[in-house]
Write a protein that binds this DNA or RNA. Sequence first.
DNA 1: TTAACTAATGACAACGTTTGCAGTAATTAT
DNA 2: ATAATTACTGCAAACGTTGTCATTAGTTAA
Lengths: 337, 337
Amino acid sequence: MSARLIDIARKTGYSVSTVSRVLNQKPGKYPVHEKTQKQILAAAEELGYRPNIIARNLRLRKTREIGMVVPDISKRFFSFLVKIIAKHLREFDYKMIVYDADEDTGIEKDAITNLLAKKVDGLIVCPVGVESRHLEQTIQSGIPFLTMDRCFEHLKADSISVDNYNGARIAVEYLIAEGHHKIGVIHGLQGTWPNEMRLKGYQDALKQAGIKAEKRYNQCDSFGTFNGYLEMHQMLRLDDPPTAVFFAGGYILLGALKAIREKNLNVPRDISFITFDDPTYAMQLTPPISAVAQPIEEVAAMAVKLLLRRMAEPDADIENVLLQPQLIVRDSVAKLI
Amino acid sequence: MSARLIDIARKTGYSVSTVSRVLNQKPGKYPVHEKTQKQILAAAEELGYRPNIIARNLRLRKTREIGMVVPDISKRFFSFLVKIIAKHLREFDYKMIVYDADEDTGIEKDAITNLLAKKVDGLIVCPVGVESRHLEQTIQSGIPFLTMDRCFEHLKADSISVDNYNGARIAVEYLIAEGHHKIGVIHGLQGTWPNEMRLKGYQDALKQAGIKAEKRYNQCDSFGTFNGYLEMHQMLRLDDPPTAVFFAGGYILLGALKAIREKNLNVPRDISFITFDDPTYAMQLTPPISAVAQPIEEVAAMAVKLLLRRMAEPDADIENVLLQPQLIVRDSVAKLI
DNA sequence: TTAACTAATGACAACGTTTGCAGTAATTAT
DNA sequence: ATAATTACTGCAAACGTTGTCATTAGTTAA
């Protein structure tokens, strides 16, 4: 068992109070004789003293910990987000406790409950996306709280995400500007906020250009690779397939690309596409893929800013921030005009 | 402030002890009258009682938490590892606290210190890889401890990693079997265990085949994309460039591929290669890339098994487990015979 | 009837900190 | 010389649990 304050106290002959004061280096509040300090510091070093954070947290009723829950930490978007947020928090001397909800609302619920019971000082949730009642309850509890990415519009809480609507819109507008009229979309899980927004962006871009959104050009199921593969095949099997396709994100690109290869089609000569999300490998594929990149670093920085503000001023007005994604033009879209 | 045991006690008129007993549902140890139970349960529900885990942990001197430190959580290898390990731990009712060391030994050290101070019941570290003194100290502390991936041979602790030596060896043996004699290697950060092992596997495979390992075919610096790009360029600029190259892992592949493209070379006609690690996109590239895949799920499962065993039997013999990676043949290697 | 048990509950002492308050000795002001 | 101030230190009460030990009342055995 590791050394405690009382062990140092006994060893040096001073009281626990004095030892505590020395080790916490509280500036001038309670002065401690220099000789005393030296002795205590030496004894602490010798005994290999490490403060028991649990006891401290209990006493202080503060943890300097921020809880975070993400739907799938193995996805780069989230793991990178986690990394950057943790890095920013470190600067403010906060630790982060991340839980992976594994795309399961039940686990998400448990994770939040546990974090509240651990008395984290603040909480960031990237909701799995299907249910929000437990989030409302969490807000009730009064903990500084922030949703990210798959936000719910009706929640009375700060939120930060990228402008999925606009990102999809500028992608599709780009396709149209390059002369495409028959534009398909392969999108992800229906009912989730980002997916709906991206789909709406696609539809509005078409409408604005006076193009009718063809039902048969609209495929969906999930953001997974296999879905991308199946849907792309289906789309290519149509009598008059689209000349360009918008992938709504995630791993659809990978699967769709495989389908295109199997049909022995050339990108962008035979088929053009652009994808939401910009994975690291997008620029290494043949051809390099045009994409709409989410500004993850900015999102992370903003998240920290919003949460710290909420912690400092619990009654500040609620902010719902939307950050703009960026169109990255590479070579996967043919110019038709 | 959330409700405490004492609030329920006051509300129902029972003592804190009784309330605690009811809420913890300890089987038959101390019987509580059924009516009492009902009242207490009802009051707990009504007040929205959530146990304070900090107080509980302090009292029990157990946390049911496992600490984990990884060098870079944004790398899929680690984020996936974290996910799977956390999932397994969940089954045993353990939570995981992960910290990202950001490839910085200083941060790694702090993270470990913090986890020890948090009194986690066990600790898994994937070391950054350059220093190990703090790990020895950690072992001294007596906490159930496990290193993964970038292990240190001299550490007296359980460890689990993939057989980097053999993985590299079977990859290079495969190249030789396909008729290649001029075989280059682009490897990663020198001095790290996996890198050295992979390099040795490469060298031994050549030696075994009676091929001299040419110094000029041996490039290294880091596992990053940019390194892969530079080194590949350099290798292609040689008078008699290798016909095949072994990439020692990570993101070297991406950069090297870019260099090959810039030289307008065809894979595998002009140059063949195989890479350690099998990223999800490897099979979607043109051509699909042959690779040596690390069995991450198995590694994760074994890690949990080893750690739980160590927690149950602190004095069991130390185990250093090596799991075999798998050769995945796709189309990036030309058959020369 | 009394002793011995059981069922149900409460009092209380931890767990290891931090910190307000009180106390003592030494120093300075009056 | 006394009062006021300062420098240093210790006491003890929290923080919210859990579990040991007592205690009470009721029940069964002798």
